[in-house]
Structure formats: C-alpha cells, structure tokens
Design a protein around this nucleic acid. Structure first.
Lengths: 110, 110
DNA sequence: ACCTATGTTCGACATCCGTCGAACTACCTC
DNA sequence: GAGGTAGTTCGACGGATGTCGAACATAGGT
C-alpha cells in the first residue's frame, strides 16, 4: 500500500544543466572514481551501472552515479532491473564548450 | 635563533602543474570563493591578496589562496608585507588546453 | 622603539564527503 | 511464488574541508 519512502518508480532527478552551478559540475568531476566513470562513458555508449567496477562497493558506485546525474553530467535510462547511463555530451558542450574535452585530455594518472 | 615553526622567509610551495592530479585542479576550481578569485585574476594582472574581498575573513582568504597555489593555479610574488598573486595561464593552457576558458566562460552565478 | 598594515598559522568547530555493510525494492526467470 | 539479479537507500564511520578568531611574523612608517 504505502509507497512512501521509496522512489523506485519515480523519475530520476536529472536537472537542467544551466541550473547546476559550475562549481557543482567541477566538484562532480573532481573525484577519481567519478572521473574514471566519465572517461568510460566518453566514447559515447550507454552502459549499465554494473559495468563500472573501479574497486568500490556497489553502494559507493551508486552514490557516485547519483552525484554525476545530479550534477547534470549523465542521463539514466531505466530498463528492467538495469539502469543505463550515458554522458550528456552535447548539452555539456553547448553550455561549457571545451570543458569536457579539456578534462578528458588530461593524463589519466596524475 | 630558532626559525623552526615559521615559514615566513621560506619559498612558497608552487608545484609543477604536471605533478598535480587533474582532480586536484578541478577541486581547487570547485569552490565559489576560489572561483571568484580566479575570475578576478583572469584579466592577467597581479593582485595583492587583500584585493580579494569576497565576504570571508582574511584567514579564510589566505587558506583559499594556498589551495589555489598548491593546485598549481597561481604563482605568488613576495614584496614587502604584501604578496602578489597571478594566474599561471600559459602553463595551464599548455597542460589543459581550453579548460580555464571553459570554466571562465560559464555564467558567474549558477 | 613603537605602531600599523599585510598575511600566515594555529586550534576549534561544524559540515560535507567517500566509503562500507546491511536492508530493501523492483524485476526477471524458473 | 521462490529465488536470483541489479541497484538504491539507510545508518554509521573516519577523514577532508570551509570557516572563524586569536596569536603570530614581517616590513614599513612615524
């Protein structure tokens, strides 16, 4: 009866990019795990969350994907029990031209 | 006799940009106060620390300038009791082409 | 010498952030 | 419907971070 307290079938929060402060976008990119995810997505494909095995638990992975989504960097499509994530490249390029390329061009290991 | 415990005349720590992880650079930019400082420096001039009155105490301002310096974003010249800060634009452009411009082009207020 | 102006450093504090295991929801397949 | 699979959410934890006032160091001026 009560679906209060669970958001499983609610729409995912995917803000308009222009409504996200730049500092949030930068903060989202300023983490090693998240940057690895972004790199993996940079090719353009769509990947299930489970794809990103970067040495963290699935709880942590879920957390990072949420941060990326709420920073306006990714979009998520729900399909069955899986969620497919992709980069919002064009929007990002329109609002912050050159930003993503500049970040991705940086060497992976400092 | 003892100059232990104070670093007033020591050289400021200004790392090679290539030795700073990208995530550190991004994290340094992912703060409102620091981004305001970077914007103020973007014109190319050299400014004394006290120039940056952005509603924080001078202790906090000093902290942020240290973060920027240690992220490789700024260089500091000591002159008398003042310290003059400037952006390391060319180096930044060489290592992360387009990054700074992309960030600066973003609207100041979210 | 004193006083002032400019910054830095030192605790201290509150908050945020990354991380995890455990419990949970939702869906798919037998 | 029982079980398995994919993810999310919930506390909890430790460590990092932003903030401040106070104390300090240094240089310059009177």
């Amino acid at each position: 009866m009560s679906n209060i307290g669970y958001a499983g079938h609610m729409e995912l929060h995917e803000p308009e990019l222009r409504e996200v402060p730049v500092t949030n976008v930068l903060a989202a990119l300023a983490d090693d795990v998240r940057l690895q995810i972004v790199r993996a997505l940079a090719g353009g494909g769509e990947y299930a969350c489970g794809t990103f095995e970067f040495g963290v638990s699935k709880a942590t992975r879920s957390h990072h994907l949420k941060v990326l989504r709420e920073a306006g960097l990714t979009r998520t499509r729900v399909a069955g029990t899986s969620r497919y994530v992709r980069l919002r490249r064009e929007e990002l390029e329109r609002l912050y031209p050159g930003l993503l390329d500049a970040v991705l061009a940086a060497p992976a290991r400092a």
